[in-house]
Design a protein around this nucleic acid. Structure first.
Lengths: 225, 225
DNA sequence: CTGCAAAGAGGCGGC
DNA sequence: GCCGCCTTTTTGCAG
C-alpha cells in the first residue's frame, strides 16, 4: 500500500460527477504492482467516516509530473470496465510511504442478522407456539423469505430484522405473502409475522388494521437466554 | 489526523461483536484534541474499500503501554452514548505520523437523484403529456412521494430512481398510492409511474398485470438533452 | 451477470 | 430524538 500526504483537489467521473476542492488529505493507494487490489481512498484529514472520493478495486494508476499553475502533479485512476475515473491534482505533496503487506487480516462477526435468524429458526415457539419450520431463505419471484413456517395448514412468512421493522420491511413481508398466493398456490392464504426488537411508528400504524400481519418483539439478547 | 502503521489485531463490541486477526494495517485516527471529529478507520493494507473496523465521530481514545506476550500496546476507542468500543492491540508499531489539517475539502456532486428529480419535475411531459406538477417530496404517513402530479383529475405518484426500479421501489410507489387513498381522500384513486433508466426483472413481472402502475424509461442523459 | 437483501451501513432532511 | 430515504452505497449470495 502507498500512502500519499499533501494538499490536493480531485475530480470524479463515472456514476456521477463530483468535484473536490483543494484541501489537506490522505490518499491510500493499493497498487496492484505491489500486491494491492487496485482500490483507492481519499480522506479529508479532519472529518468523515466515509472517504471524500474513492475508486473500486481493479483500478489502474497513471502518474504525471505536472507544473501548471499551482499544481505539482496529477494522478489518474481509471476503472475502464466500469467507466469510472478519478483525477487527483497535487498542489503540494508532503510525504509518500510505501508499506509492505505480508500478513492479511481476517474478520469474524457475531450477532449479525444471519445468526439472529438462525437462533430464531430454532426457537419458533418464541414467536408463536406450534409453528413448524418449512424452510429458511425460501425463494420467491420477489425475493427470499427469511423463514417460511406453517401454523397448522396456514403458511407463515416470518421477516426478521436485527434492529427494527420499518415501513419498508413491513411491505417487504407483504410482498412475500402476495407472492406465495400468486406463485405457489398454497391452500390457505399466508400471513406474515414481523420479528425485531423494535417497531417504527409508521410500520406500527400501518399494520394496526391489517389482520394478516403481526409484530412480535424479540431481540438478539432474548434469544441468547 | 494521526496515522499509525504496524501489525495489530482488534476487537469491536457494540452493534455486533467482531474480531480481527493480526495483520498489517493502517489506522487513521482523528483525535478531537487536534481538531479531528473523533472518528477512526482501520484498513487492511492489501484489500477492501470498506475498513475492517472503524469508530464513528465522537469517540474517545485511551492508550496504554502494554507488554503482554507479543502485544506492545493497546488502544481503546469508545463511543459511550452509542455503547460501542474498539480495542486495538499493537503487535508491532512501525510508524506514527501527526498531520495538521489546516484546509478542509468540500465536495460538490452532480447527477445524483435529487438533480435527476429536479430535471424530471421540469419536464413532466416526457413522462406523460399533460401531467401537472402538484408538489415535490409530498409527505404521507409512509414516506415522501418524489413527485406528485395530476393527470387531469387523477393523482399520479411518480417514483424516481437514478439507476433502476427494483421490486422494492415498485412496492414503495404502491405504498404511496395506498396512502393517498387512505389518508388524503382524493376524488379519484391515484396511479403510479415508475421512472428510471432500467427496470429489474422482478419489478417488470410484478407490474405487468397491474393497471395502475406503469414504468417509463428515462435516464439522466435523456434529461440533459 | 442480474437481482435482491443486509450492513456495526453513513449521511441528510423533516418533523 | 425518531423516521424514511438516497448513496459513486459496498458486500454477499443465489440463480
Amino acid at each position: 500500500m502507498r500512502i500519499l500526504l499533501g494538499r490536493a483537489s480531485a475530480r470524479y467521473k463515472g456514476r456521477i460527477e463530483a468535484e473536490l476542492s483543494p484541501g489537506d488529505i490522505v490518499l491510500l493507494l493499493r497498487d496492484p504492482a505491489q500486491g494491492g487490489d487496485g482500490s483507492a481512498l481519499l480522506f479529508d484529514r479532519a472529518v468523515g467516516v466515509q472517504p471524500r472520493n474513492w475508486m473500486p478495486a481493479g483500478s489502474q494508476i497513471t502518474e504525471e509530473e505536472w507544473s501548471k499553475k499551482k499544481i505539482k502533479g496529477r494522478m489518474l485512476l481509471e476503472h475502464l470496465s466500469r467507466g469510472e475515473s478519478l483525477e487527483i491534482f497535487w498542489h503540494r505533496l508532503e510525504e509518500e510511504l510505501f508499506l509492505p503487506s505480508s500478513l492479511a487480516t481476517e474478520l469474524s462477526r457475531f450477532g449479525a442478522e444471519e445468526e439472529f435468524s438462525d437462533l430464531l429458526a430454532e426457537n419458533l415457539d418464541m414467536i408463536l407456539p406450534g409453528l413448524d419450520l418449512i424452510q429458511r431463505e425460501y425463494r420467491t419471484g420477489v425475493g427470499p423469505i427469511d423463514i417460511l413456517a406453517f401454523d397448522g395448514e396456514r403458511p407463515v412468512v416470518i421477516e426478521v430484522k436485527r434492529r427494527q421493522i420499518t415501513i419498508s420491511a413491513a411491505y417487504q413481508a407483504r410482498r412475500y405473502v402476495e407472492a406465495l398466493h400468486s406463485e405457489k398456490h398454497f391452500e390457505q392464504r399466508a400471513k406474515a409475522i414481523l420479528v425485531a426488537p423494535s417497531l417504527a411508528r409508521g410500520a406500527k400504524e400501518w399494520i394496526e388494521n391489517k389482520r394478516n400481519i403481526a409484530f412480535v418483539r424479540i431481540g438478539y439478547e432474548d434469544l441468547r437466554s
